[in-house]
Design a protein around this nucleic acid. Structure first.
Lengths: 88, 88
DNA sequence: CTGGTATTTAGAAAATAATCTAAATAGATC
DNA sequence: GATCTATTTAGATTATTTTCTAAATACCAG
């Protein structure tokens, strides 16, 4: 989706923690959920927001759905911040 | 306040636009408000969030309250993003 | 095809955030 | 002090987000 959606997706601490977890490699929805004291449905909700923001990609395999980090859109955010700081 | 508050403050488009306006130099609350189709009270609410996130500083002068950009905390955000991208 | 595990979707409830109107504060000017 | 302008604060309302429970889907194993 859009730049604004990416920024908003990053604004939530649960979602940032999910992204941090994914730095170690792809994880299934269940593995991600087991790190949080929340229902799977809630985790699924957050994963969907991250997916719409293009911050993660999913790949289905067997019975599982694996999520992995996609940082391509992070560059845009960093550019905005750098510009805010007045750097060239 | 905290890193999380800074991230959240940046998640809102109105607040990002305020920060962008302030790139051009300090502005009074009224000057900021005139760029938006919102009441002064709402602008004040957003300014307060930016202030708590340490993204702006205020200075009182005469009858006015001027706001100016403070990007010192932006560096932290950028470090987090850079780390997410797996850069050193 | 039946049963089991993994995950999502739907819908409702709870929590948080954004917005407004009206009143309050602060300082400047008369 | 009275009044005007600039801004914030209080309180209520509306909108959005997060979360849950229950049901649905999907896929695998027997």
């Amino acid at each position: 989706m859009s730049f604004a959606d990416t920024f908003k997706a990053l604004g939530d601490p649960v979602r940032r923690e999910i992204l941090t977890l994914l730095k170690g490699g792809r994880l299934s929805a269940g593995e991600i959920g087991s790190h949080f004291d929340m229902t799977g449905a809630t985790i699924s909700y957050h994963l969907n927001i991250l997916k719409k923001a293009d911050l993660v990609h999913e790949s289905r395999e067997k019975n599982f759905i694996y999520y992995e980090l996609n940082t391509s859109v992070v560059e845009e955010i960093m550019l905005w911040l750098r510009d805010l700081k007045g750097e060239k």
